[in-house]
Design a protein around this nucleic acid. Structure first.
Length: 746
DNA sequence: GAGTTTGAAACT
DNA sequence: CAGTTTCAAACTC
């Protein structure tokens, strides 16, 4: 199974992910694994209450439901399991100086709480009420039996709180008193009336049970987890299909703590997986299934969990039961993984990449209106709307490189996404929201398919696919993402604050627009001890990921964005403001924001940040012996020298360029034919004999001038004129030689 | 390229 | 806030 790094959730609104999973069409498997996410510190403050209906102000519901619907002949049993974290989690060195590493790099972390829903074959097994399941030593109690329209409630004993979660969440919340994630609610609707394929309407009012009976307190309610999964009927499959899933990520809400995430009662069409970790914001992933009209994404994704989405079924097979494996948590190299083989759903957009063995699918939440109000029963047999939404989008991939400005996750939503670069092409501008196409497979696999699109190309969604566009992602960034296997969670279009392009196009956190930072030449850093996560690092200080740097133990990259975000938060965000800002009224346009503090350099060396920025020191500088002021003779001298040096460099460069061009021109010319005069150039006729003869002529002219008593100037003139005649003679001979090869020999 | 100098950033 | 330490770039040899 492939792992998806947790960082992605906070970074990318929507992405294509290559789960790398070969889907086996096995109806017997239906599993939802929800592991406790590692809290993403950077997003905690940013999360916004998300409601797919577009009503973010609706009354919050204390639980995050994951409702599983099954129209698959009622023969659905739920086997819930809580598993420990994956042992493969990578343990990384601790951060220096107060930096707390995120769960992704803590030894424990990962899927401390995982709920696995396994479908069993016998219908009678549904009656599991009050059973206690002990997967991996943890208990999950079924408190409520899921009848038709009613959910099965699974509760975790309070004592079962995994230590891993505490560890991972502690850094984030800083509140060890938060009750552990103890309760998980699983609502299973194995209702026959829910027909396959089409919009599973989902939760009836009764199904919203999510709620209340098991909700002891506000704190606990925040920790509740509800799983809602709409299940599809079986359909024949043509074999394993590897698909790539694009997830639309919801905007983070700021209602991290003390607030409950609202889940709109009518969850229509689609599976909603939610997960919450004690002290961390709850997470809900909405994944539509085939035939589902509009899924609702109601929860917020705050944790940095890496969610891998399992490949979808072949797009053509809209109606079929699928293997559902959703893992929210770390796996092997990553922390969490979600694999959900899905059939084509209304909120699943298929992207066809010619030649690729993967099916690119982007999960998007349906429009608020359709998703929240359209019950399944109303249109059980038809699936027209989903089909429209799932209209395929053909894209091409191309490798690209560009600088990658960093922006903190919290800043993302506040900034209007911009095109990646000026060369961006807007295929269609009518769509307000743009999303990234991010191949998760190695570039060579997709490279041939998108070669026609330049970096930054924005692809508009196909008609009927909703207001979602695409942006071609530069290869560099893709590479980084691939290393982490990022996958973001679906975002609702109603979340106006959601960044359309969070990764590549997002502005750096220092406020510098991408175009500026991209155009600015940046020297590679050589950091060794700072991990490139402190302002010592120039890249980090400028809000950019290290790229082609010489740094060691670099954490200033996408792969370690958790740490990067933490570091950014650790450092006062104010520090990321550009050092060179605009001065006061009447002053120079550019001025160092803090002023320098030089003592020995006289502010005339690059040690001085003012001098380095080619600006003069101002009143806010605290430098000693400053010579970097307007009237300073030293400064003027240096400036002149610098200008002269610059001019010299330019001239040298121009000369080199010209010389290179001339050499190239000569090389491209046809080689002179030495054996025949036809192809000879004039200079080829200046043989030793010709040169001696010319010199003799010149000497004779000099002697003649001397005999005539000519002045020196006149003698030089006579010599030059003779030289000219000799030269013309050579040229004429050359010309004759071309027409008459024997001319030179005569 | 190694060593030194420098000043910003980080730490106490 | 001031003093000290750490760090990486600039500079020198």
């Amino acid at each position: 199974m492939e792992v998806v790094p947790a960082e992605v959730n906070s970074l990318l609104p929507e992405e294509i992910m290559d789960t790398g999973i070969t889907l086996v069409d096995d109806d017997s498997i239906e599993a939802v694994i929800v592991s406790s996410p590692i809290p993403m510190e950077t997003e905690l403050e940013e999360i916004v209450n998300i409601n797919s209906t577009g009503d973010s102000t609706a009354t919050p519901i204390s639980t995050e439901p994951i409702t599983v619907y099954s129209n698959h002949t009622n023969q659905v049993a739920v086997n819930t399991t809580i598993t420990k974290a994956d042992s493969n989690t990578t343990v990384k060195p601790a951060f220096p100086s107060g930096l707390q590493k995120l769960g992704a790099q803590t030894p424990v972390t990962i899927s401390a709480n995982q709920i696995i829903l396994n479908k069993v074959s016998q219908t009678s097994d549904i009656k599991l009420g009050n059973q206690t399941l002990k997967p991996d030593g943890q208990k999950l109690i079924l408190t409520t039996l899921g009848k038709s329209g009613s959910p099965i409630v699974l509760a975790l004993p309070h004592s079962q709180l995994p230590q891993a979660q505490k560890v991972t969440t502690q850094a984030q919340s800083g509140d060890a008193k938060l009750p552990p994630q103890q309760i998980k609610v699983v609502t299973i609707g194995g209702r026959p009336e829910v027909k396959p394929v089409i919009g599973v309407s989902a939760l009836t009012p009764g199904s919203q049970l999510i709620n209340t009976t098991t909700q002891p307190s506000v704190l606990q309610t925040q920790q509740l987890k509800t799983v809602q999964i709409a299940k599809k009927p079986r359909t024949p499959t043509s074999g394993p299909v590897i698909t790539k899933l694009i997830f639309a990520k919801p905007i983070n809400s700021k209602a991290v703590t003390g607030q409950t995430t609202q889940v709109s009662p009518p969850v229509i069409a689609g599976r909603v997986l939610s997960q919450s970790t004690p002290g961390t914001p709850s997470k809900t992933i909405t994944i539509s299934e085939s035939g589902v009209i509009g899924s609702t994404l109601n929860s917020t994704t705050q944790t940095p969990n890496k969610i891998a989405i399992s490949p979808l079924k072949s797009p053509n097979k809209a109606v079929k039961s699928t293997v559902q494996t959703i893992t929210v948590g770390g796996v092997s190299t990553s922390q969490f993984k979600t694999i959900i083989p899905l059939a084509t759903a209304p909120n699943v957009q298929q992207i066809q990449v010619p030649g690729s063995k993967f099916h690119y699918v982007r999960l998007v939440t349906a429009t608020s209106a359709s998703s929240s109000t359209q019950p399944v029963s109303q249109n059980p047999s038809t699936n027209t709307q989903p089909l429209q939404q799932a209209k395929p989008v053909v894209v091409n991939t191309t490798p690209m490189r560009m600088s990658v400005p960093i922006v903190s996750a919290q800043a993302v939503k506040q900034v209007v996404p911009k095109p990646i670069n000026s060369t961006s092409q807007i295929v269609t501008t009518s769509q307000p929201q743009q999303r990234l196409i991010m191949p998760a497979t190695p570039l060579p696999q997709i490279q041939p398919n998108l070669t026609n699109l330049p970096p930054g190309t924005v692809l508009a969604p196909a008609p009927g696919t909703g207001n979602v566009g695409y942006a071609v992602l530069p290869a560099q960034y893709v590479t980084q993402l691939q290393q982490s296997s990022y996958v973001s969670i679906a975002s609702n279009s109603t979340f106006t604050g959601t960044p359309g392009i969070q990764t590549q196009a997002r502005p750096p956190f220092n406020g510098i627009i991408p175009s500026e930072s991209a155009s600015r030449p940046r020297k590679p850093c050589n950091c060794t001890k700072s991990l490139c996560l402190k302002l010592y690092c120039d890249c980090f200080a400028n809000g950019e990921f290290c790229n082609n740097c010489n740094c060691t133990n670099c954490y200033n990259n996408l792969e370690h964005e958790n740490e990067s975000c933490l570091a950014k938060k650790h450092i006062n965000s104010f520090s990321f403001k550009p050092k060179i800002g605009k001065g006061k009224e009447g002053e120079s346009d550019r001025r160092h924001s803090k002023g320098c503090n030089c003592k020995r350099s006289g502010c005339l060396k690059n040690y001085c940040e003012c001098y380095e920025a080619k600006i003069m020191c101002s009143s806010i500088c605290k430098c000693v012996g400053c010579k970097n002021f307007e009237e300073s003779p030293e400064r003027k001298t240096l400036m002149h020298l610098a200008d002269a040096a610059e001019v010299r460099v330019q001239q040298q460069t121009a000369a080199k360029t010209k010389l290179s061009s001339q050499i190239s021109d000569l090389l491209t010319r046809p080689a002179p034919a030495l054996n025949s005069g036809g192809g000879k150039l004039p200079f080829t006729f200046v043989t030793k004999e010709v040169a001696e003869a010319t010199c003799n002529c010149l000497l004779a002219q000099a002697e003649q001038a001397d005999k005539k008593g000519k002045s020196k100037a006149a003698a030089e003139r006579m010599i030059l004129e003779e030289f000219g005649r000799c030269l013309m003679s050579v040229i004429n001979s050359a010309g004759k030689a071309k027409s008459d090869p024997c001319a030179m020999n005569c």
